[in-house]
């Protein structure tokens, strides 16, 4: 985990690099939402991203590409302090 300087601004996560079919999106540019929904597929590369993170009492910056060479479980969930 790379160190993250804590400031008052709220850093946001984002994808990294040109996604495989981003060129396609630019050319078609019509139904962006559908393209976004179909970007991640089994058997295809997981899009890289970078985001601020909390771990072991520290704030840092985490990229998916930091984990190449390892198995990764990526878990999205609706929100902190939710019930399930």
């Amino acid at each position: 985990m790379k160190e993250l300087k804590v400031g008052c601004g709220k850093p946001i996560g984002s994808t990294v690099g040109l996604l495989a079919n981003e060129k396609e999106t630019k050319e078609q540019d019509t139904n962006k939402e559908v393209v976004a929904m179909t970007r991640v597929r089994v058997g295809k590369k997981a899009p890289d991203f970078e985001a601020p993170a909390y771990q072991d009492g520290k704030f840092g910056q985490v990229s998916l590409s930091d984990y190449l060479g390892k198995w990764v479980v990526l878990c999205f969930y609706p929100g902190d302090f939710t019930f399930v």
């Binding site: 994808t15 996604l19 976004a36 929904m37 179909t38 970007r39 991640v40 597929r41 089994v42 058997g43 295809k44 590369k45 997981a46 899009p47 890289d48 991203f49 998916l64 590409s65 984990y67 190449l68 060479g69 390892k70 198995w71 990764v72 479980v73 990526l74 878990c75 999205f76 969930y77 609706p78 929100g79």
Partner: peptide, 26 residues
């Protein structure tokens, strides 16, 4: 990009992805 964001609720659904050492979604 991962297809789990619910624009109406502004939250992410419970999406779980297993990614192999080559970075491929399994």
């Amino acid at each position: 990009v991962y297809g789990v964001y619910d624009e109406d609720a502004g939250v992410e659904m419970r999406g779980r992805f297993i990614i192999d050492p080559d970075g491929v979604v399994q």
